[in-house]
Write a protein that binds this DNA or RNA. Structure first.
Length: 598
RNA sequence: GGUUCCGUAGCUCAGCUGGAUAGAGCAACAGCCUUCUAAGCUGUGGGUCCCAGGUUCGAAUCCUGGCGGAAUCACCA
């Protein structure tokens, strides 16, 4: 039993003894003692003052005295106003340190066997454009949330849903056919996703030219001109051919998609994310259509005169939603219905997490309602992890204005910055080229990941390029640096000494800094539990930053290896070691590596 | 207009299911390397927690109403 629970139940017993009534659950509030007061845990007595019919001071005094008597871990208490501060024994704290010292997975819960998995969908790119900063937030969140769930004992399936069909794909195909002269990634040396993206841009610019010409010559409006533009008509024609499985069109589609996937894979690999299964919209939209038609038969959906199929959501104060166009083709929602079904069939998950931007809140509301109306058992298992947009100092990213921050370019810049700063500090003597390369990558990506993940997912965030390459203060490299520092000390101590060090923990005392650090370490498992239940990597990021700060203060104030009293020195080694493990484990939850030297 | 989310120091962000005097980083200024990695540590200044009511012993946190910002309400995805 955790000490907090033990104390709560003891307090509950004390109150029952005094009043004859057991206090209701939740009445007894226990929390960490604020740093400026003496003590480790604090019981807020206000909620129970009424039960005892005495002043807060008297209640605190009475309960405090009884707790010292009854709970062996409680050593002493002090009461300030309505707050009962309890100090736990040194033995308790040192016991905690000793128990967890050998645990490489400190903080992680063991996997629960045979439990239904959680499916986490993230990334979900379109195959006509390279990945950008917005995708980076998505990928980092999805990956980290998966790690978080795994570390809390769940089995997790990471899935990616690739949007590989539709008119936008046809646009880049068409441009390539018309203007490409057979260009390939090999012939041009371009990354596959970039090459295809270039043709999408080319399509748009050619189209704009045609639209302008039509508006000029016919005096048409822009919308009308777009519909009439030959390129647009050709693209639609291509889409029809694709849906009819035209041989040549399918061949080009497959070829261009394979280029894109090669490019994406390179980006994913560098970003350090991966998937257990990849779904393709081209495989799921037909299933979605079948489900909708089935719903039509069951009269859950209805058909309009023009043959389009809709669902009535007025009961939920939502507008009617189109599910099949009048020509029988599918829309995004239809496809997502199919994907949800497929995913359920594949994994029978307890929960399906969708990491998708908050611009699609409405979409997921509707999806859940539609599935519910269809009587799908997994409707309530759907959870939309809705995250905010990434904005730049001068506003939003707009592809038209060329303000989109490309994922590959951004990673390049972070790594280059890491190399520059590392070079300035001159700490890589003895590193070979391979090690240097790994270090720059680790620091650069660490900075980027931490910068993005430390912000509460649901909030919009500002990506300031200048701040993102600052490696001081509340940053990934600061935490990595703290880890490297500890490793340096542990290396100097040597493994023999580390193995024997825990032997002293029975008879040493802790100073304030040591105890503060130990208490921070104690918080990790609980923080992880909360972060997992809230699906919030930010909780971990903020925790590990706090821990690193705590360690640096300790490191500054307390000499570890130069401490003359070897028992104290050994105890500090133990503290340092558990801190290193905790930093490493916490950072791993964010998908961030930690270097042993930097 | 309807719905949802956000509003905390000059800037970027924390603040856990309501709890003690609201915290970090950046930026500014002042200190600390002959001693375990100074990507560090310490100090100073900086706040009507958007506003107004309400609930409560207690509200940045919960409720209501404003104000400001964002997203969304497509036979786009």
């Amino acid at each position: 039993m955790k000490i907090e629970e033990k104390i709560i139940s003891a307090v509950s017993g004390i109150i029952k003894r005094l009043t004859g009534v057991e206090p209701e659950a939740g009445k007894i509030v226990i929390q960490k003692t604020r740093k400026d007061f003496r003590g480790d845990l604090t019981i807020v007595v206000f909620p129970i003052v009424k039960l005892l019919k005495r002043s807060p001071e008297e209640v605190a005094e009475t309960i405090g005295r009884a707790l010292v008597e009854e709970v062996e871990e409680v050593e002493e208490f002090n009461a300030v106003k309505g707050f009962l501060n309890l100090s736990l024994t040194e033995r308790y704290w040192l016991g905690f340190l000793e128990e967890n010292l050998k645990d490489d997975k400190f903080g992680y819960m063991p996997a629960k066997p045979n439990s239904a998995p959680v499916v986490v969908e993230y990334s979900s790119p379109n195959t006509n454009k390279p990945l950008h900063l917005g995708h980076i937030r998505n990928n980092l969140l999805g990956y980290s949330v998966s790690r978080l769930l795994e570390a809390s004992g769940k089995s997790v399936k990471k899935v990616n849903l690739v949007n590989d069909r539709g008119i936008h794909i046809c646009k880049s195909m068409l441009a390539w056919i018309k203007y490409g002269n057979g260009e390939t990634p090999e012939s041009s040396g371009k990354k596959g996703d970039k090459l295809v993206g270039d043709y999408y841009v080319r399509f748009e610019s050619e189209l704009r030219r045609q639209v302008a010409a039509i508006m000029e010559s016919e005096g048409a409006g822009e919308d009308e001109a777009r519909k009439k533009a030959p390129l647009m008509l050709e693209a639609q024609d291509l889409l029809r051919k694709w849906e009819a499985r035209d041989g040549e069109v399918t061949r080009i589609w497959k070829m261009m998609n394979s280029w894109v996937y090669e490019g994406f894979d390179a980006t994913y690999k560098r970003l350090g994310v991966d998937f257990d299964k990849i779904y393709y919209e081209s495989d799921t939209y037909l299933l979605g259509r079948d489900i909708v038609l089935e719903g039509l038969e069951k009269r859950v959906m209805f058909k309009k005169e023009d043959n389009s199929v809709w669902v009535d959501l007025s009961a939920y104060k939502l507008d009617d939603k189109l599910l099949l166009r009048s020509d029988g083709t599918s829309v995004y929602m239809t496809q997502d219905i199919g994907t949800a079904q497929l995913r359920y069939d594949d994994f029978e998950p307890e929960k399906m997490v969708y990491v998708v931007g908050n611009e699609q809140n409405h979409h997921f509301n509707v999806l859940r309602r539609v599935l519910k109306k269809l009587g799908k058992p997994y409707a309530d298992a759907i959870y939309h992890l809705s995250y905010g947009m990434v904005e730049l100092p001068d506003g939003k990213m707009k592809s038209r204005e060329g303000t989109v921050v490309d994922a590959d370019d951004l990673m390049d810049e972070m790594v280059t910055t890491a190399e520059r700063i590392t070079g300035e500090l001159g700490k890589t003597s003895g590193f070979d080229n391979e090690e240097k390369k790994w270090l720059y990558h680790t620091i650069g990506l660490g900075a980027l990941k931490y910068f993005i993940l430390k912000v509460d997912p649901k909030k919009n965030m500002l990506f300031n390029p200048e701040e993102s390459v600052d490696f001081n203060g509340n940053t990934g490299p600061f935490i990595q640096y703290t880890y490297a520092r500890i490793c340096s000390v542990l290396r100097k101590a040597g493994s023999d000494r580390l193995d024997n060090a825990p032997g002293v923990l029975k008879d040493v005392t802790l100073n304030e800094k040591e105890k503060q650090l130990l208490k921070s370490l104690y918080d990790f498992p609980e923080t992880l539990r909360e972060a997992a239940s809230e699906l919030s990597p930010a909780r971990i990021a903020n925790y590990v930053y706090e821990l690193a700060r705590e360690f640096n203060q300790f490191y500054h104030d307390c000499s570890i290896l130069n401490e003359p009293d070897t028992r104290i020195s050994d105890m500090r080694l133990c503290l340092s070691r558990l801190t290193a493990v905790t930093i490493r484990n916490a950072m791993a939850l964010l998908g961030i590596d930690v270097p042993e030297r930097m």
